[in-house]
Amino acid sequence: MKTLTIEGTPKTPMVKFEAETGKIEIKGRSIPENSIEFYKPLVEWLEEYGAAPQKLTDVHVQLEYFNTSSSKCILDVFKKLETIVKAGHEVIINWYYEEDDEDMLEAGEDYQSIVKVPFKMIEVEE
């Protein structure tokens, strides 16, 4: 399965999904007007990956900002990961937030309370 790589832009995050290692990264800003269009290939990739995932899928989400239109799409990504967990595989979502950015921590906690996937909250320096 091919690695999914998308360069970051001022409005969309850098994406790197590696099937061979199970490492999944989303980094940057996610504030596009049409989030559904941007996230569609990510969700599709995870659907295919979910059929034969690695023993551990290591997810790193490091967002500076995201808009509400992205928030639903990010949940769709997490729900795909939840399906992988339900099938008996290990997934961990590492949710990064800058120190003092309580809103980003809270956003991670909101997701944590919705999807049944283990989260690790990681504080990073600004």
């Binding site: 559904i36 239109s69 639903k72 919705i114």
Partner: peptide
């Protein structure tokens, strides 16, 4: 959280989450 988890979003936006 209720809207995020339960409501379908339109192509236009975030289903009133803004």
């Amino acid at each position: 959280k209720l809207i995020l988890n339960n409501q379908e979003f339109s192509e236009k936006g975030g289903g009133g989450l803004g």
